[in-house]
Simulated assay, not measured.
Amino acid sequence: VIVASGPLTSDALFADIKKLLQADYLHFFDAAAPIVTADSLDYDKVYRASRYDKGGADYLNCPFYTKEEYVAFWEALCNAESAPVKDFEHDVFEACMPIEEMAARGEDTMRFGPLKPVGLIDPRNGKEAYAVVQLRQDNAAASLYNLVGFQTHLKWPEQRRVFGMIPGLENAEFVRFGVMHKNTYLNSPQLLDKHFNLRSNKRFYFAGQMTGVEGYVESAASGLMAGLAAARAVLELPEVEFPDVTAHGALANYISNPAIENFQPMNINFGLIPPLTVRIRKKKEKNAQIAARALEALDGVLPALKTEQA
């Protein structure tokens, strides 16, 4: 059985899926902060530190050193344009406050919340900033970081404009913008393997956006992988192994990695694909080489499939 009922799964089917999983691994809505690439940050401004130097320095910090630059950011956030909210999405706001709503409650509200600067000393100059935006590592390769506490309903161009005012994020590459909407999806890393097969019941496969892949192409790719896996299981053929360096393999690894604790739906992006062994400064050239490597890796997979089909 392949389940591909999408992000607005009906209540009745949702209840049956929940019964099948026998655990609270279904999410009713998606409230996710923006994610940026690590190599697009300005490290002359961003610094690594933990609050009061306790534990590992797991966060990158973007400091507003003056009240003036913080207030300019706060005013821009308060006046930014939000996306229209559908009736069935109002419950999202009750469960998780958007950063722009927090800002609207007062100039200093964010400074006592996610932008609290206390204990985050810049090791380069010993200063404590007026406000600090923290970035949390989002994948094992440390190539992606999310903006802590910045779940938002702002329109995407507004997110790029306003969040680009954060020190160190002026030229940040956003691989995912913040979203808040109704979205039925699985906590796939705890449920599925990289073939989109349910670990607890091998008769079931899941595919599409409900697995935590975002976008039409990604959803189709997940359907291809689930369909291949299910068909080959019936035919008693070995599973197809898409290499990690391909987009298919990277996406499958993302949704099936049990080490991911705060799983959020994701589009395919270069940050999910293992980096090259050599450093290339020009992004266009680097991405072209990553793509070429992926095509070469697929050459080891596709001919075998064609031979079996013949």
Rank of each mutant, 00 (worst) to 15 (best):
C78M: 02
D122Q: 05
G113S: 15
N183R: 13
V3E: 02
V118A: 11
S10P: 06
T184F: 07
Q190E: 05
G271N: 03
A172Q: 02
S256C: 02
N197C: 15
I260E: 06
K286D: 10
E170M: 09
R124W: 10
E308H: 03
T9S: 07
R124D: 12
A220W: 08
A31W: 00
S219K: 02
N187C: 04
E68S: 14
Y70K: 03
S82P: 10
K127S: 13
G55Q: 06
Q190C: 05
S40A: 10
P303I: 08
R48W: 03
A103Y: 01
V278L: 15
P117H: 06
L224V: 14
Q137P: 07
A142V: 11
R111A: 06
P258C: 09
L26K: 02
A103H: 00
E308S: 04
V1R: 07
E75P: 05
I268V: 08
R293L: 15
D30S: 15
Q289A: 14
Y185G: 00
E308Q: 05
L144M: 11
S50N: 11
E68K: 11
A31D: 04
L147N: 02
G6P: 03
R105A: 13
N139F: 02
G113C: 14
K127V: 12
S219W: 03
E81G: 05
G227F: 00
A95M: 07
R111T: 08
Y254V: 07
Y65D: 12
N79D: 09
C96F: 15
T66E: 10
A83H: 15
E100A: 02
F270G: 01
F73W: 00
A38G: 13
L135R: 01
E236S: 12
D44K: 09
F112G: 12
T152Q: 03
S5A: 15
T9P: 01
V3L: 06
P123G: 05
D58F: 07
K194D: 10
A103S: 03
D91T: 12
P167H: 02
R203W: 08
N79W: 09
A230K: 00
D193V: 00
R111W: 12
I290F: 07
M180P: 01
A15I: 03
R161N: 12
V46D: 01
V36W: 00
N287H: 13
V179S: 11
K18M: 07
D87Y: 13
Q151K: 05
N257M: 04
G178P: 00
E218K: 04
A23M: 07
Q309F: 13
K45L: 08
A72V: 08
D108R: 08
V245F: 05
V85W: 01
G164L: 04
Q289L: 14
A288G: 13
A76H: 00
G212N: 04
L251A: 13
D91M: 09
M165K: 15
N201M: 07
M266K: 11
E214P: 08
N183E: 12
A95G: 14
T307L: 14
E128N: 08
K306F: 11
D42C: 06
G168V: 02
